[in-house]
Nucleic acid binder design. Structure first.
Lengths: 313, 313
DNA sequence: TTAATCATGACATTACTTGTCATGTTTTAT
DNA sequence: ATAAAACATGACAAGTAATGTCATGATTAA
């Protein structure tokens, strides 16, 4: 066994063990204690943070968590990691913020100068924009941890009607448009509800549950239409163009030869409230054939607006 | 110089040089050719992809791009890299896709099994959701490259009025809500315009420009209000709550003692078209005091809706 | 006080590395 | 066809590094 190989093996073993004596390493690797002392010096030269305690109950303690064997990355691969970190730039208080910072530092230091320039350019020329939020989600890390660990929670949640206590089983967390969401099974309502993580004020208690429940990935795959309703809309050419810009409609738009189009699909009735303002914006470019409820909703809102600002003159 | 150190130095040198003879390495490092041959064998054992050509004009060729010195990461640091890659999951055809895949593979292979389980859980329990887009942006990579390289472009762009040719200076690219955007200086319009990358059909030509222009980061910092207009709105308690959920309004909302609130700020007139439908959705929960234009725009839209669906009865 | 630990130097022994020389193979240029 | 330039690899002497043993000293806890 070459010295370099053994040195790395001792490094991995030591970083996993955290606290050990030279005799333990000697036994593990069938070498003398004197050689262990020498290897410890070599590991210090390598930069491993380690301190020694002399005397009875003495030994060595490693101040870093478990290390991996060193990996050879190409420069381009390192740049791809910075690219990925750039996508997190518009988030605050993420899990792994500290670790990401230290990765970035280690990687950046190891780059030759042309590659450093390239990374700096990536940072300046590309962004994954999200709204800068004043709302914080300090419990995000804990929520994620509890989801992964299959725990049920009692939380304090700020709903429309004020602060209430809920008993939930979290499924996972996802970010969208600068906010974090937690789909969770609500034990009182007996259904999966969506929560905003910034509206969770406290985790009152947690219980372990051996029972596995669906995770976020499965939840995304599980698309439920509870109360089907037909959405049928005629679109002008401009209507087609605008609908293709709206994520919700994009997959539904059928374009015709003369570049007008239509939507004819089945959606869930619960989504009508969400798409009403979308049709307000589209105006004459989208003529709703069905459902009647959507037309009525639009007319009701329009009447409210006219009433409200009629008096304002 | 220890053998391990020299071996790494030769690895870095070789990966940068790509094609070389044993004599060149011998000259560079002041060692014999026979020793070079042995080091090459050691590098092969390390996994460096390298092949040899015998005969006149022979030598060695390395099949990988420039390598970095090996870095020691902790397990948690590796997990943070996977976390960052998870944030890219809802994008397609990104720059560095290939490299990211190979990083992920290298890292995952180096993990002990408990850490592999943790990474798998992160992948299953957290998402950075974006709408799944049917629109592709195959030119994204090129656009980013040209931005970084300070080039001006002639592009074919699909606008409202059809396909047209534009002469632009790209500033950078950013992603928002599943789409990629390119702010660029338009030489014909003499102003910075926002373009959708999926609507760029072709890059007709590029020219190098020595002159540095603002980059994306600077553009984001440079907030321009061209035509100031006052936005003054009274909000009910529910209006406060809903406005705080809208990124645009979030920073403007002032909450009062009785939990109603108001917005009183200066915005750019060009943004009125964007916020009109937001007020449609708010309805009676937000009463617009100013500007008059916004009230008029709302009333006009409302009248159009009522006219349109009156005839539909 | 004793035992268990780290710290380090000295030196003999062992192991590994290097360079020189030799033999063989492959390719290209003349 | 021959020569030159390259890789491929073995053998062996010489040089260098690593290891283990032994010794001395310091520090802590029981």
């Amino acid at each position: 066994m070459s010295k370099a190989k053994r040195l790395l093996d001792i490094l991995i073993f030591a970083s996993a063990k955290r606290k050990f004596t030279a005799q333990e390493i000697a036994d593990e690797f069938r070498i003398s204690v004197r050689t262990v002392h020498r290897y410890i010096l070599d590991l210090c030269d390598m930069g491993l943070p380690i301190y020694a305690e002399q005397g009875r109950n003495g030994g060595y303690t490693v101040l870093t968590s478990r290390l991996l064997p060193p990996i050879l990355f190409t420069e381009e691969e390192a740049v791809s990691i910075f690219f990925a970190f750039q996508s997190l730039k518009y988030y605050r208080n993420l899990p792994f913020d500290t670790e990401a910072a230290s990765v970035a530092h280690k990687l950046y230091s190891s780059l030759p100068s042309e590659a450093k320039v390239k990374v700096d350019k990536i940072r300046s020329y590309i962004a994954f924009w999200n709204p800068k939020r004043t709302l914080d989600a300090p419990l995000l890390k804990d929520i994620l941890e509890h989801s992964i660990k299959n725990r049920t929670l009692h939380i304090q949640y700020e709903s429309k009607s004020g602060l209430k206590t809920k008993h939930i089983r979290p499924i996972g967390v996802y970010a969208h448009d600068g906010l974090w969401y937690l789909p969770a099974y609500d034990y009182d309502k007996n259904k999966i509800l969506l929560h905003r993580v910034d509206r969770i004020h406290a985790i009152l208690s947690t219980e372990n549950s051996e029972e596995e429940f669906m995770n976020l990935e499965e939840w995304f795959d599980y698309r439920e239409i509870k109360k089907p309703i037909r959405l049928h809309v005629h679109l002008t050419m401009e209507g087609v163009r605008q609908c293709k810009s709206v994520p919700y409609f994009d997959g539904f738009v059928i374009t015709q030869k003369d570049e007008t189009g239509y939507i004819d699909t089945i959606i869930d009735e619960g989504e009508l409230g969400f798409i009403t303002p979308l049709f307000f914006r589209l105006g004459g470019h989208a003529r709703i054939i069905e459902p009647r409820e959507l037309i009525d909703g639009l007319r009701k809102q329009a009447e409210e607006i006219l009433t409200m600002y009629q008096e304002g003159i």
